[in-house]
């Protein structure tokens, strides 16, 4: 299982790649593996605002479905449109091609985990 060092993580298995006042958001490798073959991703639209810890969309696999929670608050400035036709990108490349949305951050990100902390959390849930 990969947990890149340069990212921050939420307890609900999203990651955020923060660069200045923008953040790219996705779900972790651990989460995609748990879900299995992903078939559909529902994302907010450009211009919507998302709030840290609140629902921002949902993700479906053949046999499971899960809500997506925003790791940071802000305005959506881009969504990964490629996922509409190729949701499998989330399985194949959770941290790169499988990104979900890009957000202009408002406020300080809080309660996010480091890669090490997240790896521990994931290990404890993996049973």
């Amino acid at each position: 299982m990969k947990t890149p060092e340069n990212l921050l993580y939420s307890k609900s298995h999203e990651w955020a790649d923060i660069d200045g006042d923008t953040a790219v958001i996705g779900i972790t490798d651990f989460a995609q593996e748990l879900l299995g073959d992903i078939t559909f991703v529902e994302l907010p639209a450009v211009g919507d605002t998302v709030a840290a810890g609140a629902e921002m969309g949902s993700i479906e696999s053949v046999k499971a479905a899960s809500e997506l929670y925003a790791p940071v608050s802000g305005e959506v400035i881009a969504v990964n449109e490629a996922l509409e036709d190729a949701p499998e990108k989330v399985n194949e490349s959770a941290f790169e091609d499988g990104w979900l949305i890009k957000v202009r951050i408002s406020g300080e990100p809080k309660d996010l985990l480091s890669a090490t902390e997240y790896a521990e959390l994931a290990a404890s849930e993996d049973h």
Partner: peptide, 8 residues
Amino acid sequence: LQAREQHI
């Protein structure tokens, strides 16, 4: 599309 349904 069973992920929408009640059993999941």
